[in-house]
Computed example of a mutant assay.
Amino acid sequence: MTGLPDRVAVIGGGRMGVGIAHAFAALGATVTVSETGDLDAARKRLTDSLSRAAERGKLVDPLDVVAGRVAFVASVAELPGDTRLLVEAVPEEPGLKRRVLADAERVVPDDAVIATNTSSLSPTELGAALRNPSRFLGMHFFNPVPASELVEIVRAETTSDALVRDVAGWVELLGKTPVVVRDSPGFATSRLGVLLGLEAIRMLEEGVADAESIDRAMELGYKHPMGPLRSTDLVGLDIRLAVAEYLHGTLGERFAPPQLLRDKVARGELGRKSGRGFYDWS
């Protein structure tokens, strides 16, 4: 394959799904986003994302032209039958992902590429829901998708070599750097990022320092662009907890979630999306 796929489908109209749609539409692809929840909220997320990019001079084409390339539908069954690439970006629930992937495979063409945006779940296990798992792999985008520089390509046990090469080429055309990893718990980025984040939460829990001091220490001392606690707020404490629990079950005690993290999630302190996490976002 050469060039970006001209017709892209995204399942999930949350921050990540809309970001993926933005990235492809900005470079000319026609994109359809399937969202079973609030379609108006998903449309607003796209408009806001594109507007910010336009204000920064990051869109080659006019805002209304790029926005016009993205359509929203209420079910996977409504995705176009000529889709060339489908990216699943629903919450990190294995059963949900397997269901929507199996439903999508019945809609898209037999030669379409199917990818999951999971940050930690096994593409090999998710791909078992498909009739043809050789065309399936992980495309782990990072938030915010339009501005991020990395896509972690996760090769499932069934993924063909040609598919990995094609998708790596697409990632480069998006202006991002592909890093190919084999299917293992947490891949490379989530495994390291979660471990750092959990230790920072333990330090806060133990009173080693306050959140801002811990973050500033990593930003200034190790040149991290963002400290681990602020990063956790942006990712979402609920998502970080779910990934930590998965890694705890697969890789052992070093990924055990701190009680402080569990308590904050139980109180609904999920980070920026709820207005409060380790920081006040209100």
Rank of each mutant, 00 (worst) to 15 (best):
Ser160Glu: 14
Ala200Ser: 06
Pro146Gln: 07
Asp263Phe: 03
Gly221Ser: 11
Arg155Trp: 11
Met1Asn: 07
Glu88His: 07
Ala156Thr: 09
Glu125Phe: 11
Gly14Ala: 07
Val31Pro: 01
Gly227Tyr: 02
Pro5Gly: 04
Glu212Phe: 05
Arg52Val: 04
Phe72Asn: 13
Glu149Ile: 13
Glu157Val: 11
Gly236Pro: 06
Gly138Asp: 07
Leu247Lys: 08
Met226Gly: 05
Glu269Gln: 15
Ala25His: 04
Leu196Met: 13
Ser148Asn: 13
Lys223Leu: 13
Leu196Trp: 02
Glu245Cys: 01
Glu199Asp: 15
Val76Leu: 12
Thr158Glu: 14
Met139Val: 13
Ala242Gln: 09
Arg165Leu: 12
Ala21Phe: 08
Ile20Leu: 08
Gly127His: 10
Asp215Lys: 03
Val179Trp: 06
Pro185Val: 10
Thr116Ile: 08
Gly13His: 10
Arg45Pro: 00
Ala200Ile: 00
Tyr279Asp: 01
Ala168Phe: 02
Ala162Pro: 07
Pro109Arg: 14
Leu196His: 12
Gly17Ala: 10
Val107Glu: 05
Leu101Gln: 00
Gly227Met: 01
Gly17Ile: 02
Met218Val: 14
Asp40Arg: 10
Arg106Gly: 04
Thr30Glu: 14
Ser122Lys: 04
Leu86Ala: 08
Asp64Lys: 14
Ser75Arg: 15
Leu234Met: 13
Glu219Asp: 02
Ala104Asn: 12
Ala156Gln: 04
Asp38Tyr: 06
Leu174Phe: 09
Arg254Cys: 03
Arg240Glu: 01
Leu137His: 09
Asp280Cys: 03
Ser122Arg: 05
Arg165Gly: 07
Val65Asn: 05
Phe142Ser: 12
Gly68Phe: 11
Glu206Ile: 02
Ser120Ala: 15
Gly81Leu: 11
Val181Ile: 10
Arg56Ile: 04
Trp170Pro: 07
Leu59Glu: 05
Asp48Ser: 13
Arg69Lys: 11
Ser51Pro: 00
Pro123Gln: 11
Leu198Asn: 02
Asp263Lys: 07
Ala256Tyr: 06
Glu105Ala: 09
Val265Phe: 05
Leu195Gly: 08
Ala29Arg: 03
Glu92Gln: 11
Thr158Met: 10
Val10Ile: 15
Asp40Gly: 01
Gly37His: 14
Pro228Tyr: 01
Ala112Gly: 06
Pro80Thr: 14
Leu96Ile: 09
Ala147Phe: 14
Asp263Leu: 03
Glu105Leu: 13
Gly68Pro: 08
Leu50Pro: 00
Ser190Leu: 03
Gly37Glu: 14
Ser160Ile: 10
Ala209Trp: 03
Lys176Asp: 12
Leu173His: 01
